[in-house]
């Protein structure tokens, strides 16, 4: 018998009012999937397919129109405060506060959690060092490169010791080399710390590199294809999976403006 999934989406739908005020459009359509504890799931889909809406639903930032989201037995929207410190998010852009130094940005989550100041500073310094930013603690974001800023945002997410990591195309704004290095580093940290992670991307190779499983979304967000990935398929069996994903993605009509 399978263990109870850590994250469970059950027939989740999210509708938004149309900008012209006439009716609604559906961003997520009866979406159902599970993620087990310690699993890393990559979500792929074209722009506008509802990945980010699904992401915000899981983060508890918006409420589903219908259906149920269960994260370790709790509803992330209705039990918003329960998840304080339990969910860490790495966004597409670094979203650093420009008025805070690198160290203070990493301290943000710990400050919100009301952790002891000295202990928090030690934790923040530890994560900055692990991400190769030792010596840049007092630099303001404008003085850091794009890669360094994204490292700070990863440190900020890890510093609160979350149970779940949500990543929304975190390396897409970086150059190829920096993105590759940072991705490897990020994955190592996720595995070492046994985090459950959901990783949104629109790069097929990145999804295969990152995920234990890859979910391919069609618009409005619903699963069109699912593949389990292991080391063998990453090395020798990558091509058939890539082809299959490409085929599934090409079946979808281009996104229309809502």
């Amino acid at each position: 018998m399978n263990a109870k999934p850590f994250i469970h989406f059950d027939e989740v739908t999210k509708d938004f009012p149309r900008p012209d005020g006439k009716g609604t459009f559906t961003a997520v359509d009866r979406l159902t999937f599970d993620i087990n504890q310690g699993e890393v799931v990559a979500v792929l889909g074209k722009t506008g397919c509802g990945k980010s809406t699904m992401f915000n639903l899981l983060a508890g930032l918006i409420e589903p129109t219908s259906g149920r989201i269960d994260v370790n037995g709790h509803d992330p929207f209705k039990e918003f405060n329960y998840f304080r410190g339990r969910i860490g998010i790495v966004f597409q852009s670094d979203r650093l506060m420009p008025w805070r130094s690198a160290l203070d940005n990493v301290l943000l989550g710990l400050q919100i959690l009301n952790k002891d100041k000295k202990e928090s500073e030690a934790i923040a310094r530890h994560w900055l060092t692990r991400l190769g930013l030792s010596g840049h603690e007092n630099d303001y974001p404008h003085a850091l490169s794009g890669g360094m800023r994204q490292r700070v945002s990863i440190a900020r997410a890890f510093a609160v010791e979350p149970e779940i990591l949500l990543c929304d195309e975190p390396f897409s704004s970086l150059d190829e080399m920096t993105a590759r290095d940072l991705r490897q580093e990020f994955l190592r940290l996720v595995r070492q710390n046994n985090k459950t992670a959901l990783f949104i991307t629109h790069h097929i190779n990145e999804a295969i590199d990152v995920g234990d499983r890859v979910l391919v979304f069609h618009r409005p967000a619903r699963i069109a294809f699912e593949a389990r990935i292991d080391d063998a398929s990453r090395q020798s069996g990558r091509k058939p999976i890539q082809d299959e994903i490409l085929k599934v993605l090409s079946l979808e009509a281009p996104a229309a403006t809502p």
Binding site: G85, F91, I112, L113
Partner: peptide, 16 residues
């Protein structure tokens, strides 16, 4: 809006 969403992801109190 980006910073607001990021801050809210840590679930701060109103005062925080």
């Amino acid at each position: 809006k980006d910073l607001f969403e990021m801050t809210m992801s840590f679930r701060p109190s109103g005062w925080m």
